[in-house]
Design a protein around this nucleic acid. Structure first.
Lengths: 200, 200
DNA sequence: TTATTTTACCTAACAGTGTTAGCAAAATTA
DNA sequence: TAATTTTGCTAACACTGTTAGGTAAAATAA
């Protein structure tokens, strides 16, 4: 009964080739230029075949979004494991977040940059991101060290994530390369400010 | 020669009726559902007439963006004029920024939410926003009061704006109304943290 | 092996999008 | 009144996402 397996394997290959082609197109031309027909041409199949694997175009984007969050999560974990002290962990993770965004602009834009679409994508972002879980422990420790033990760690976390996203998205605009130095300063300023704000 | 004037007036009326119709459609159905044909139908003219007033669809969105920044600017100025102390000025402006975003979600999304398009829209945002100029003076004063006079006001400003945008855009996602309380806390946490970070 | 059914895949279409070429009618000027 | 400019329209082009319906090949059943 190897026939069914071969078919299944082929189907999975086709599915991932769709994602691969879609991703390549997104990187090359931006996610606004992505079209089903271009994907079909790239994988050398007709258009309806794509709809055998994905319900619609949005489902493809959503899958790429998931891939992006997976990459981000591993980067964050790696950053956390690289250091020991609580402060340096937060710092490393913020930096890793920043680096991921700028090293994978296309991913970050698919993950967040689609604006506020009517789809379910956005609602899934908070579920996809393990950023909160990862950074919760360090934040709690920092608060414990600080002078105000009543500080809400979830609130701090939420603020941290929001502000970090703001820094990334604002600095991703324009695209002037000569702002690279400024950007580094902005990030450092933010991190040190945030850490000290929890100790107070 | 009142004929030419009448024509000119009519042309301007048509132009603003296009913008008005476009805006109404954006509010009702979101900016992704905006189409030239819908605008044409709304103003009861044929499609090509629109192209006599705007080069393309993007130009219409850009005009709405400008309107949005104008509204935001006046809100910020009003907030600044309402208070005297430096700290409360910054606080009031941040709050006004926040309120504008959530009271005019459609505007804010047109202004920032289009992701990172290939167009020139984004590059014009920094020029359109007078947020930087308005908040520069209060920031400078705060730094002067603080213990570290070498702090770069422009850097602080940039950070402030970025983080504020991050707070808004993250909290604008999801759209759960029961998060309203949390959102207020997040904003207050951010403002107090930022102000104290400059005094240090 | 033959008949039947299932699977795989494609062509062609529908309804929508931004944009523009070319033409008819109305308004203005000479 | 005749010529000219302005005004606005129809119709088309080249796209977009999505799907209905059909065909030929492959797998299964008789």
């Amino acid at each position: 009964m190897g026939i069914a397996e071969r078919k299944k394997r082929h189907k999975e290959e086709l599915r991932s080739s769709i994602l691969e082609a879609a991703w390549q197109l997104v990187v090359q031309e931006g996610w606004q230029a992505l079209s089903i027909r271009k994907i079909a041409e790239a994988i050398e199949y007709s258009v309806p075949v794509i709809y055998d694997h994905f319900a619609n175009k949005e489902a493809i984007l959503l899958e790429l979004t998931k891939q992006g969050f997976q990459k981000l999560n591993t980067a964050l974990i790696k950053a956390q494991e690289g250091t020991v002290s609580t402060e340096s962990q937060i710092e490393a993770m913020a930096y890793a977040y920043w680096r991921f965004a700028f090293d994978n602009k296309a991913y970050y834009q698919v993950m967040y940059g689609l604006g506020i679409p009517s789809c379910e994508t956005v609602n899934q972002i908070s579920e996809l991101s393990t950023f909160s879980e990862l950074i919760l422990q360090p934040v709690k420790k920092l608060i414990a060290i600080g002078k105000n033990p009543e500080t809400d760690p979830f609130l701090k976390l939420h603020t941290f994530w929001s502000m970090l996203h703001g820094l990334v998205s604002i600095n991703m605009m324009g695209g002037d390369q000569d702002k690279e130095e400024l950007n580094q300063l902005v990030l450092q300023d933010f991190i040190s400010g945030f850490i000290s704000s929890m100790k107070v």
